[in-house]
């Protein structure tokens, strides 16, 4: 069992409160996943600057040296902002190249995300503490995803925590389990996707990243995913300027959506939604099995 939540702000009204609202949704999902948690925040960064979120669990890396080396590789300035065992590297250089270089040269690090909008944080332990330690409540932005994990098939580790991101500004949280992910991972690796874990959900994130890179819209990518992915899933997906929800056609894993003029929220359970502003007047519905739901913001 896991808990997933997503919040997409359709207007500017609640953007200063995105982190606070996401933290309140995450709090309600603690029971579904007390082992570890993670969140992705999209915050309208400058398009010309790529941010790379890196996790150095249980280590004390020399971030300034890593940053300096990366500057040489990218031939572009790199600034480093450490937050506990995470760091956000900012550069006008090529983010995809930076991700690959970090993965190739620092196998002890986890590159959690890259893109101009996204930052991802994840850690083992109480989801509320994860939110506090990585200062979720203070964050503003346009949309966010979060996940609480109850490990059933593998150890309680940080790198099994969601969200997963392999492509620029694209990430996913997953409740369920995929059955054909090993085969699919091999296929995606041949297409150039780079994976850092043995996790099934990372493969789903990689699949979407690959399709988006090939030019699919998020809707087209998810239409293909319905055919390509075998298993149980409720996904909440973030892209640079949008948000999507997809459940497998059997739909064993729960999902509820609430929408007002200002926001759309998705959660494993309705109680996450009750704390959102004006939730009493929201339109509340269960996403239908095998149906793709997307929301996008004009650039």
């Amino acid at each position: 069992m896991c808990g997933i939540v997503g919040l997409f702000l359709k207007t500017e009204r609640f953007q200063p409160r995105l982190g606070e609202l996401t933290a309140s949704m995450l709090h309600e999902m603690r029971d579904r996943g007390p082992d570890s948690a993670g969140f992705a925040i999209y915050d309208q960064g400058r398009a010309e600057v790529t941010r790379i979120t890196v996790l150095a669990e249980g280590q004390r890396p020399d971030w300034s040296r890593t940053g300096a080396n990366l500057e040489t590789v990218l031939d572009a300035e790199v600034t480093v902002r450490p937050i506990r065992d995470h760091a956000v590297l900012e550069t006008p250089g090529d983010g995809g190249r930076a991700r690959q270089w970090l993965i190739d040269n620092f196998p002890e690090l986890d590159v959690l995300s890259y893109g101009s909008q996204i930052e991802i944080y994840k850690a083992v332990g109480d989801p509320d503490l994860v939110a506090i330690n990585y200062e979720l409540r203070a964050r503003s932005g346009t949309h966010a995803l979060a996940h609480t994990r109850m490990a059933t098939e593998s150890a309680v580790t940080t790198n099994g925590s969601h969200p997963f991101a392999t492509g620029a500004d694209t990430c996913l949280v997953h409740n369920g389990s995929l059955s054909n992910y090993n085969w699919l991972r091999t296929r995606l690796e041949r297409q150039g996707e780079i994976f850092q874990t043995e996790n099934d959900s990372e493969v789903a994130a990689g699949y979407l990243a690959w399709r988006l890179r090939e030019g699919d819209s998020i809707k087209e990518a998810l239409e293909r995913a319905l055919v390509a992915l075998d298993g149980f899933f409720t996904f909440a997906i973030g892209i640079e300027n949008g948000f999507a929800i997809l459940r497998d056609p059997i739909a064993c894993k729960p999902a509820i959506v609430a929408e007002t003029d200002d926001w759309v929220a998705m959660s494993s359970e309705y109680r996450s939604i009750t704390h959102l502003p004006d939730s009493g007047h929201a339109s509340v519905w269960e996403p239908a099995p095998g149906v793709i739901y997307t929301w996008t913001r004009a650039a």
Partner: peptide
């Protein structure tokens, strides 16, 4: 009885 909708 519920006045709204039920999920699964």
């Amino acid at each position: 009885r519920i006045t709204g909708s039920a999920t699964m």
